[in-house]
Amino acid sequence: MTATLKKLLLAMLGSVRDLLPIILVIVFFQFFVLQQPLPNIAQILLGVLFVVLGLTFFIHGLEQGLFPIGESMATAFARKGSLFWLIMFAFSLGFGTTVAEPALIAVAEEAADIAAAGDMIGSSLEAKEGYADGLRYTVALSVGLAIVVGVIRIIKGWPVQWLIIGGYIVVVIMTMFAPAEIIGIAYDSGGVTTSTITVPLVTALGVGLASSIRGRNPMIDGFGLIAFASLTPMIFVMAYGMMIR
């Protein structure tokens, strides 16, 4: 028990160190540039304490729960040898973790507002909601497909750069044809899809898969899943914008 406690305390020190830069930046700008006192100091201090505790617990749980289960499942799928179920799992993981992602829901709503302001869709609440939901499912679908492609790449051992550069070329070509209003959102949607829980799980899946397939290097073949997951939404969102127009 004391060993665990000691470990947690050490981890907490690490979290404080991780958060120190933000605190310094905020204090510097508040006092020296904007020259204003901090509002509501008690609440801010409590907030900082929560952030430190939260980060500590998260990292602890990550190493105890998310990483092991991700890797053990990857190994189990590799041993089972069923490509069908592995692909089903990869797709569900990508789709399921993205469709409920709060950042994506927020972005989809803003995109609907833009589309309504640009007269691409009606400005009724229903039209906007329909557009936002369509966009959300489009992105979730694209992330599911991205993880599937990424998993197939690990199995086949294709070099990641050809697929990514190919994707870039598609993005560039589509940029020329997509409506101007959607481009900023499409580019942003690549970054917002990968949440704090998805990233460790997907990374563990990739590394675990690459380590249990003979001839694959976990460093070269294991990473890269996140890269696909942040590339395909750009393509799909622009396609969505072109279709709805």
């Binding site: 801010i44 929560f50 998260f58 602890h60 749980g61 289960i69």
Partner: peptide, 21 residues
């Protein structure tokens, strides 16, 4: 237990961010 830690940690983290940052 690890999942529970992740849940607890993420909740505290988000709440703290919402309050201060």
């Amino acid at each position: 237990a690890g999942f529970a830690w992740v849940l607890l940690g993420l909740s505290l983290f988000l709440l703290g961010l919402k309050w201060c940052l």
